[in-house]
Write a protein that binds this DNA or RNA. Structure first.
Length: 947
DNA sequence: TGCAATGCATA
DNA sequence: GTATGCATTGCAA
């Protein structure tokens, strides 16, 4: 470093607060009962800075009485700050005493905040040739950063980072640190109660800044915004300006930087020692003496300081006494107390016999007993929610209501495997029925131990999904609804998620037993309940032949996961940035010069003055050329440069939702992405996918669909096969309605939308215009969703009355379709539900509502649910059959994904021809309709190519 | 930290 | 107009 003098300005309150909250979980209280956390925290930071940096000049700045100017501007300023904690209030005078003893100047100015004092001083020092370091964690200070003014910012886990101009540019994505003020003004700051612009947070503020550069320019160009955002910002321009003012650090506080006064000289060691002794700071006293004793130039790194002792070893599982483990020795049942029918039962109020099984002989006896059962409910307890990484902590079993056993699993992997081996005959027994709640999870966990769950299955969650798809199906809800019983909550055992949540392994064995066996017991009781109801709802077949077999299929697919080119994924984010650069270059080339694409002003001049893309460019209120979305997309088809600009704008969204998110979901152990298919959330019978959702990977836009390139085959011996049903929902509605005209079109392999257009607009098939086909397509989809003229006119260029006319003509063309629709609605009115081809029901309680809006929605559901649901039924059948054939044929090919009407396979190349035939045949013949089903196959080295 | 509202990705 | 999941934001704790 040069010989330039260095001034450190310390933001006292920021460091005091930070120190105080650092100890919040474990406050420092001395023998006099004084909470010294804040003092300790602050002094640690201060000494740390001195020791590390040895500043020539240093001062500590405090607030006094808040900022009168800002309160004048905005009465709410800092109004919602919590009352300052007591420990901080008492800390301030003590810290000031210590500073005096250390001969460190204290800067305060009534009516000004420390920010303003520091700002003013740093600018003065800059003029005098100093390098200034503002010691504060508060990001507001970034606006002051210049070539000679830096932020010196404590970071979590110790250490500091220095923010100069490049750091601020990067962090806030701005050119000039002064734009930090605009940034803060836009996004607001809840702790200072700076309102900001409504609806604008960090991401949006950065976007705006890149595009408009400042608050003022944003407000001058709100016409370019869309939707709610536009309304909100236009309505709150003044608030934005005010917010910016509030966020601005003042530079004209009446204080003077006096170099001599600020020189860091020797402290009054005795005085400081006395205060520290009084506070009972022993370590800090040592630290202080070391810092100021002359010979300490560098601090030894060998000294094992602080945190080392804090390392917490997870509590070992309590090894209970032998008696507790004995199989039949302990009866911890509780007598039933009389409960009114309004009081829910719990484990405490109902009689039960739950017991843990000890290792050794007890386990052998237990398993012998287990093997004699014909139907057993089980529930695994694990260390987490992700079955790929979770380890078994125990398994609960129950085959008699009110009674059950819990087998804890050792943490040691080999021992756990030995134990599961003993249970293998049970799980793999074909003759013992297995009952569970969400068995897919347990099956996946056990698969990780190489155990296959065989035999008949009964999943209470799936059963209830068929009985009442609109409800939720978690066990607590089911127990309360059907058994009038409240199970022990998981949070009671392991705490709320986040900070101190325990792993199931850390829970006492007795509690584990109570909790786990209770789950198994309740599940068993629910099974008895739902068994009857399944028959009554006529969905037994759907349960046995679709949902239960599908559960095995899904667990296999989920465990398999899909390969992601990890290098590609990890770099895709940067590649996108490269793409942006390429787009920029291409735009510059076309434009013939470089300019700021993000600036609408410059862009408008380039497009409409230089390139003269249109004769009469649309202008905005402020007289500038409009470059808004709708203007540009209108020009997009004729000009590549416009497409590039639109792409450029759309990238950030893509990046955050997919490109940056997906790599974090790659499982370390497998290098693959394992989605979780939800079998019980979609009321229509569809699956849904989450963590991550692989059913909404972009495909419509060129840039978006690039994400699909990241989904690749297992290795070079494999290829991806995508098989999708063509127009399955329209085929279903044609078949169900028996509308011959439409059925014929499908039988003849016609382009259905063109065919519809030809009939509705009464033109020969080969003379259908693009627009006619497009409108016909919209109506076809509208039918599936339960059309209204209003909805149709929103989707097309047609007016409301034209839409109505089109729909009327459509119904005239396909009269049976109209019949079908009214039949569905009538059926729903009479029965309260509609159903799919396989009898999957959806109950529509609002179908007879007197509220037309509510009733209308129910009527659309009545039309859509059987269509969407039947399509779901059919692909589920195909999946089950394909799964079985893949196993039976011992193929290496795996089924990986389902996207509603599409299946994706990882095909072993030598099997390709066989698999293509197999998949196509199984999908097309999954269910017999009066309309042929048609499946398109595509292969490729990634999911994008396979389309 | 958890919730609702908004907007947008898919079929 | 149907069915989902998720990122971001603001607000309530």
């Amino acid at each position: 470093m040069s010989d330039q003098k260095r001034l450190f300005l310390v933001d006292a309150f920021a460091l005091i607060f930070r120190g105080y909250y650092a100890f919040i979980k474990n406050p420092r209280i001395n023998s006099k009962g004084v909470d010294t956390s804040a003092i300790m925290g602050f002094m640690n930071s201060l000494l740390d800075v001195i020791k590390r940096e040895r500043p020539d000049h240093l001062a500590v700045c405090f607030d006094k009485g808040g900022s009168t100017d800002r309160v004048e501007m905005y009465a709410e300023y800092k109004a919602n700050r919590d009352e300052t904690p007591e420990a901080i209030k008492i800390a301030v005078p003590i810290i000031q005493d210590i500073l005096k003893a250390m001969h460190i100047p204290i800067m305060v100015k009534a009516g000004f905040e420390a920010d303003d004092v520091i700002g003013t001083l740093s600018k003065q020092a800059e003029k005098e040739g100093y390098k200034t370091f503002m010691v504060t964690p508060d990001k507001d200070f970034a606006q002051l950063v210049s070539e000679n003014i830096f932020m010196y910012r404590p970071v979590f886990g110790g250490g500091y980072e220095t923010w100069g101009i490049p750091e601020v540019q990067k962090k806030f994505e701005v050119e000039d640190p002064l734009q930090v003020i605009d940034f803060l003004g836009m996004m607001g700051d809840s702790s200072d109660n700076i309102p900001g612009l409504p609806g604008v947070g960090e991401k949006t503020a950065k976007k705006f800044l890149a595009q408009y550069g400042s608050m003022e320019n944003l407000l001058a160009n709100t016409h370019e915004l869309k939707g709610k955002m536009k309304e909100k910002i236009e309505a709150n321009g003044e608030l934005g300006i005010l917010s910016k003012k509030l966020a601005t650090i003042m530079l004209d506080v009446p204080v003077t930087f006096d170099a001599k006064d600020f020189e860091l000289d020797h402290p009054d060691i005795e005085a400081v020692k006395n205060i520290f002794q009084d506070l009972e700071f022993r370590r800090l006293t040592d630290n202080f003496l070391k810092t100021f004793s002359t010979e300490t130039e560098t601090t030894p790194t060998s000294a094992p300081q602080k945190q080392e002792a804090q390392k917490v070893t997870p509590k070992e599982q309590k090894s209970a006494g032998a008696g507790q483990f004995s199989l039949f020795g302990v009866d911890d049942s509780v007598t039933t107390e009389t409960t009114s029918e309004y009081t829910r039962q719990t484990a405490k109020t109902s009689s039960h016999f739950y017991q843990s099984v000890a290792p050794g002989i007890a386990t052998k006896l237990f398993i012998k007993n287990l093997m004699n059962q014909t139907s057993v409910c089980f529930d695994t307890e694990t260390t987490g929610l992700n079955p790929i990484t979770a380890e078994l902590v125990g398994i609960a079993f129950s085959w008699e209501i009110g009674k059950g056993f819990y087998m804890p699993f050792p943490e040691d992997k080999n021992e756990a495997q030995e134990l599961i081996e003993q249970l293998r005959p049970f799980f793999e027994s074909e003759s013992i029925q297995k009952i569970g709640q969400n068995l897919k999870y347990d099956i996946k966990v056990l698969a990780k131990y190489n155990v296959t769950v065989k035999g008949k299955l009964f999943d209470t969650m799936l059963a209830h999904y068929l009985i009442n798809p609109d409800m939720r199906h978690n066990m607590d809800v089911l127990a309360e609804t059907y058994l009038n019983y409240t199970p022990i909550s998981i949070t009671e055992l392991i705490g709320k998620k986040g900070k101190n949540q325990l792993s199931m392994r850390e829970v006492d064995l007795e509690k584990q037993t109570e909790y786990a066996v209770e789950d198994a017991d309740i599940t068993l009781q629910l099974k008895e309940h739902f068994e009857k109801e399944l028959g009554e709802a006529n969905t037994q077949k759907l349960f046995d032949e679709i949902e239960i077999p599908l559960l095995r299929v899904l667990s296999t697919m989920e465990l398999e996961g899909i390969n992601l080119d990890k290098a590609f994924l990890n770099s895709l984010s940067e590649q996108l940035n490269t793409d942006i650069a390429n787009l920029e270059k291409s735009i510059y080339d076309t434009a013939g010069e470089e300019f700021n694409i993000a600036s609408p002003k410059q862009l408008g001049i380039i497009l409409f003055e230089k390139m003269k893309l249109v004769d009469k460019p649309k202008k905005t209120k402020t007289g500038q050329y409009s470059t808004s979305e709708d203007v540009l997309s209108y020009l997009a088809k004729d000009h590549k440069i416009i497409r590039n600009i639109l792409d450029f704008r759309g990238l950030s969204k893509l990046k955050s939702t997919y490109v940056d998110a997906l790599p974090t979901q790659v499982e370390e152990t497998t290098g693959r992405v394992h989605t979780d298919y939800m079998q019980t959330v979609a009321a229509t019978g569809r699956l849904s996918s989450n963590n991550p959702n692989l059913q909404n990977i972009p495909i419509r836009t060129e840039r978006g669909r690039q994400v699909r390139k990241a989904f690749i085959p297992r290795n070079e011996n494999y290829t991806l096969l995508a098989a999708d049903y063509s127009q399955i929902e329209l085929r279903i509605i044609a078949a169900l309605s028996k509308e011959e005209t439409m059925i014929e079109a499908f039988k003849n392999g016609e382009d259905i939308h063109a065919s519809t257009a030809s009939k509705v607009f009464d033109v020969p098939l080969n003379q259908v215009t693009r627009e006619q086909r497009s409108n016909a397509k919209t109506v076809n989809f509208g039918i599936i969703y339960g059309v209204s003229a209003f909805g149709l006119s929103n989707q097309t260029d047609l007016s409301r009355s034209e839409s109505k006319e089109l729909i009327d003509t459509y119904y005239a063309t396909y009269p049976k379709l109209r019949n079908f629709i009214s039949e569905q609605v009538d059926f729903a009115r009479d029965n309260g539900y509609v159903q799919t081809v396989l009898g999957r029901r959806r109950y529509l309680k609002d179908i007879n509502s007197r509220n037309a809006v509510v009733r209308g929605a129910a009527e659309r559901n009545a039309v859509n649910a059987p269509i969407q649901g039947s399509a779901a039924d059919i692909i589920k059948i195909a999946m089950i059959n394909i799964h079985e054939k893949l196993i039976a044929g011992n193929y290496k090919t795996k089924m990986l994904l389902q996207v509603h009407d599409e299946l994706v396979f990882d095909v072993y190349k030598p099997e390709l021809d066989t698999i293509k035939t197999l998949v196509k045949s199984e999908m097309e013949n999954a269910y017999k309709l009066d309309v042929p089903l048609d499946v398109d196959l595509d292969i490729g080295d990634n999911w994008l190519e396979a389309h």
